[in-house]
Nucleic acid binder design. Structure first.
Lengths: 118, 118
DNA sequence: CTGAATCCTGCCAGATACTG
DNA sequence: CAGTATCTGGCAGGATTCAG
């Protein structure tokens, strides 16, 4: 009667899909570094460019655009004599703070584990 | 006296580094899908291969090797008439369960947010 | 300053064949 | 079954230039 339970059925499949969803949104080399910084407040394009070591202008604008498309960040344009654009987490994007905290916590814990070995 | 506080100094830098650490370990297209499955128990190479849509044998073994190098998973080899290898989360790798839960939760929540728009 | 467009390159990863 | 080796095309992403 009871068919052997597949370890990957039921709730599990839902979780796997959810993880795929998240990773799809956050995939790419620079999404997390960008988001992590915006967790602390809005930043200008040039500030992000300076802050994120190694990123190119092309990649920064590409990734920002994707994040904006997914409603995770918002941009605000100021036109004075020289243009200024600020990026910030959207209301929905604020939910990423919890996630980045989890990720950061794991990183800190992992680093401690590594240290103990030496 | 009080220098203007840089939004990206202090604890913040620590968090940014921690996120970089985590993402470095978990970077790559297939790390999370693999880990997510191993959260539910050990699996054979061929089971993972079937379970993860789109992954090639080369990538699977490569990513498994990296995860093993980072002490997140362990492999167990059985030699009967035909070889069998099972992969499981290591003790330290178990800490990834919490992280994957956070990631899955965010994915579920995000999907709901998207739905509401329509 | 904030990008978009173009060109160019390395390496990522798929396909295939082979091994223990 | 559980991988490795080799070969190859495509594309991610860097550098540079142009535009608003």
């Amino acid at each position: 009667m009871d068919k052997k339970v597949n370890v990957l059925s039921g709730d599990c499949a839902k979780k796997l899909r959810a993880i795929d969803d998240t990773m799809y949104i956050l995939s790419g080399k620079w999404k997390m570094p960008i988001i992590a910084r915006l967790c602390y407040g809005s930043m200008r394009y040039s500030e992000l460019l300076k802050s994120i070591a190694g990123i190119s202008g092309k990649m920064l604008s590409r990734e920002l655009k994707e994040l904006e498309t997914n409603n995770l960040i918002e941009k605000e344009v100021w036109r004075s004599e020289s243009m200024s654009v600020r990026y910030r987490l959207s209301e929905h994007g604020q939910t990423l703070k919890i996630l980045t905290d989890s990720i950061a916590d794991w990183g800190i814990n992992h680093r401690m584990q590594i240290m103990e070995k030496w």
